[in-house]
Write a protein that binds this DNA or RNA. Sequence first.
RNA 1: GGUCCCAUCGUCUAGUGGCCUAGGACGCUGCCCUUUCACGGCGGAAACACGAGUUCGAACCUCGUUGGGAUCACCA
Length: 469
Amino acid sequence: MTVITRFAPSPTGFLHIGGARTALFNWLYARHHGGQFRLRIEDTDRARSTPEAMEAIVDGMQWLGLDWDGEVVYQSQQADRHAEVARQLLADGNAYYCYCTPEELAEMREKAKAEGRSLMYDGRWRDRDPSEAPASVDPVVRLKAPQQGETIIEDQVQGNVKFKNDQLDDMVLLRGDGTPTYMLSVVVDDHDMGISHIMRGDDHLNNAARQAQLYKAMGWDMPVFGHIPLIHGADGAKLSKRHGALGIEAYKDMGYLPEAIRNHLLRLGWGHGDDEFISTEQAIEWFDVDGLGKSPSRFDFKKLDNINGYYIRQSDDQTLINLTLPGLSETIGRDLGEVDIERLTAAMPALKERGKSIPELVENAIFLTDTRPLEMDEKSASAVAGDAPKLLAEISVYLKSTEVWDHDALDACVRQFATDREIKFGMVAQPLRAALTGRAKTPGIFDVLTILGKEESLARVADISTKQA
RNA sequence: GGUCCCAUCGUCUAGUGGCCUAGGACGCUGCCCUUUCACGGCGGAAACACGAGUUCGAACCUCGUUGGGAUCACCA
């Protein structure tokens, strides 16, 4: 069987982290099995769908590197087909018109609640003669679902899940205005698109049973379901828009790399032995349902940071430079000049060893673009106090006479100075670092000297050494 | 409340009846490396929710309890 999966978000908001994981799993599953991965926008809810949200979803998918096969399907454009299916169901006696008013329905639920039953429609129009229909009500079309027996979902993740049919009411297929509901639309679209495997959040598990009844009524083959546990917020509750669920672009803005997000999401609800850092290629090779867990997981930013740091170290310098440039420019409030970019380029190999996110890279790169005289942070200020200026004046003599300005030569030079002066290496390195960068967190001192170049380095040192102690 | 799902360190997880005095990762923490910060290396604290049962033997199977979650729309 050819595997065809899909990701079917509703465009009522951004692409949030749970949706992104669902998309990733479906994408991985399709790629692993050499099948297709489709994207369908579920914009059945005309009122709540927005073009901005659709754009955000598409952008998010692209940023994550999840490419889909074929054209994007817009569910709303299939409305006629959905209605046609409803009419067929009606003609076959598998659906019926229901003339209940909203008030009646509300009353029904009140009563059910009071009696401790499920909040279900009681099927009062199921076998009622249409001649009794009130003229003032636009009827909805409901599925005539079986009332006896049970519906079993053979779920790839959850196993066999049984629902008693008397617990499932007759769901609305067509609204009073003739538009299809989600329940109808998903089933028809999944069928028409030939979707073979449906992987989605387990908040849809209950829906699956009712959808199964619809497949059955139409005589269609059922896709294979796989309901994956949800990602919860730090407090263990479902992630929702007002509950810590951020759009995927928020993660981008926070400086996370798509490969890091992918890796972290992959490990939420799926595992492959003790493997932690899993490349996308490996993920495609390994991903299958047997690695999926059944219990919900929580999103842990600390772990994401760690993973992101790993991928930053793995990234090539130019990519990182491109990502750092805009933030750096914004932070220092000016466009970057040629010299700035040269320095950033030279510094990136050292910078990326100690950054967990792009903003951190930016932060750590600021010293490169600072103009003299440098502002000192607290630690640096104390490092250049006291005898430091004198010491720096002496070391600058050594530095000045250095012919070759590279890491090894500078290393030898500064160590020679320390030896000559009979002081510990750290005693000279600390003031030097402070004078050169103004801060405590920096790349190695020889890297800093190399990156800044001889002229700038000596100038920065002179700013301190010539200051009256 | 009805229905459905879930339950191993704080978090993500490995574990599918003996290999478990429960492994890995993040985080926390001690030491080492070291010019700062990271990285890296070596250690440490930290979990099978509870109670029965099945079995020679249970984290793994069964039942119950407790706890958490999802869902019950003319939303998707």
